[in-house]
């Protein structure tokens, strides 16, 4: 290598070392402050303790009118569900049945979830178009369809926390590491693990497979 090219490399190294390294404060200074109006516009979530509930109220009766107009096409007039669209009412007592019917009344643990979800995602295809009063009214109507409040009930921010959903006590946090401890079996059996084996069920019999299966099998 010539003396001049070594000098050039030396210069390049010096330039690289001169590149300023980020300050060690841990802050980059990227981004800008979020304005209160911006936070208010996007922060629409509601928690079980009522944090996030907007001022407002709505009655079962008002909710019924709204529901028939904007929700019943998918969810049915009585929130019983149309086709495969979600069933929102009924199903109480079916959680140990062969085919449980999970609804707001039979399964959901927190009423805040219904308010939050309707507010953020419903009506399907026209999300975030409902006012706070309309959302309270729809939640009141759904509570009534689930036999949890009377027909003359009015739901509001003030009385929201008085309504409890019946299945709430049935939920518990993930306990797989205790309840399924026996799956952490570091030495699974490798040979003669069971005396015999037999087929007990076949997907081909149910035949619910969509297209894509290859039926033209030929072994050479």
């Amino acid at each position: 290598m010539s003396r001049s090219s070594s000098a050039l490399i030396g210069l390049a190294l010096a330039a690289a070392l001169a590149l300023p390294v980020l300050a060690q404060s841990g802050k980059t200074g990227l981004g800008r402050p979020a304005l209160p109006e911006e936070i208010q516009a996007w922060d629409i979530d509601v928690r079980p303790d009522g944090v996030g509930l907007p001022p407002g109220k709505g009655s079962v009766k008002e909710g019924e009118v709204l529901f028939l107009e904007r929700c019943a096409a998918c969810h049915g007039e009585f929130a019983e569900g149309v086709g495969r669209w979600p069933v929102l009412a009924g199903g109480q007592g079916t959680m140990t049945a062969d085919r449980p019917e999970k609804t707001i009344g039979s399964f959901w643990p927190d009423l805040s979830t219904a308010f939050d979800y309707i507010r953020r995602a419903m009506p399907y295809g026209n999300a975030q178009s409902l006012t706070a009063d309309e959302t309270y009214a729809l939640v009141a109507f759904l509570l009534n369809m689930n036999n949890l409040v009377a027909e003359d009930f009015v739901l509001s921010r003030e009385n929201f926390l008085t309504v409890k959903l019946p299945n709430a006590p049935s939920f518990f946090d993930d306990d797989r590491e205790k309840a399924e401890r026996h799956f952490w079996n570091r030495t699974p059996c490798l040979s003669n693990c069971k005396p015999d084996t037999r087929i007990t069920g076949r997907a081909a019999i149910l035949d619910v497979t969509p297209d894509g299966g290859d039926k033209s099998i030929k072994v050479e």
Partner: peptide, 18 residues
């Protein structure tokens, strides 16, 4: 809550099974 919770045979449901 209504989804991504695991309903067990006894009617209880595991949640936060991440």
């Amino acid at each position: 809550t209504s989804k991504y919770t695991d309903l067990l045979a006894d009617g209880r449901s595991r949640r936060f099974t991440f």
